[in-house]
């Protein structure tokens, strides 16, 4: 990383989110990105990508999960200034941006009503997506393990497992 925070009022930061580049001024002003800002904060408050939810803001609940270079990370535990030159994907970036067709995993969540209040759902979908990227044919236990950092208080877990397993199967992997 080449940024120099000392010159923050003149420095810029470029993030690549869902395939689009966004540049920010670094600083403490209302429209700037401060060195203390988390990626979750920047996604929500600067880019309006509110599909990424903040619940615990402490790395415990997984509601803020996004993909960085295809891997699931909790965006409340990363500083925005650490995320330059990385490919960030949020829930808004799933699916086909041209046809607007949603990702088969999202469709599977709809088909299985794999949510209740839906607050933790984007984070769960992103964690599951990261798993399927890496392991397209997981066992049910592997799905459980991959989602073990995702809090859901309504207890939609069982439907989520059905949805992820069905999506993996539909992907022709089982």
């Amino acid at each position: 990383m080449t940024l120099t925070l000392e010159k923050s009022s003149h420095s810029t930061l470029t993030l690549t989110v869902n395939g689009e580049k966004h540049s920010f001024m670094l600083g403490e002003g209302p429209h700037e990105v401060a060195s203390s800002h988390t990626l979750a904060h920047t996604l929500r408050e600067r880019l309006g990508l509110t599909g990424t939810k903040i619940s615990c803001d402490n790395g415990a609940c997984g509601c803020c999960t996004v993909l960085i270079n295809g891997k699931a990370v909790q965006s409340c535990m990363l500083l925005t200034v650490e995320c330059e030159e990385k490919e960030i994907t949020t829930i808004e970036g799933l699916g086909d941006p041209v046809t607007n067709v949603i990702d088969p995993l999202q469709q599977s969540f709809i088909d299985h009503t794999a949510f209740q209040c839906g607050f933790c759902t984007p984070g769960i979908i992103m964690s599951a997506k990261a798993l399927l990227n890496e392991n397209p044919s997981p066992t049910r236990d592997e799905v459980k393990e991959a989602l073990s950092g995702n809090f859901c208080r309504c207890i939609s877990h069982y439907h989520v497992l059905d949805a992820v397993m069905a999506a993996a199967k539909k992907g022709g992997n089982q």
């Binding site: 599909g51 808004e92 709809i110 949510f115 759902t121």
Partner: peptide, 21 residues
């Protein structure tokens, strides 16, 4: 019968606006 929730698409795409959104 099982029918999709009316708000399902908004929920799975992150478009649902909760208060802090």
């Amino acid at each position: 019968k099982s029918t999709p929730r009316k708000d399902a698409l908004d929920i799975v795409t992150g478009r649902t606006k909760f208060i802090n959104d």
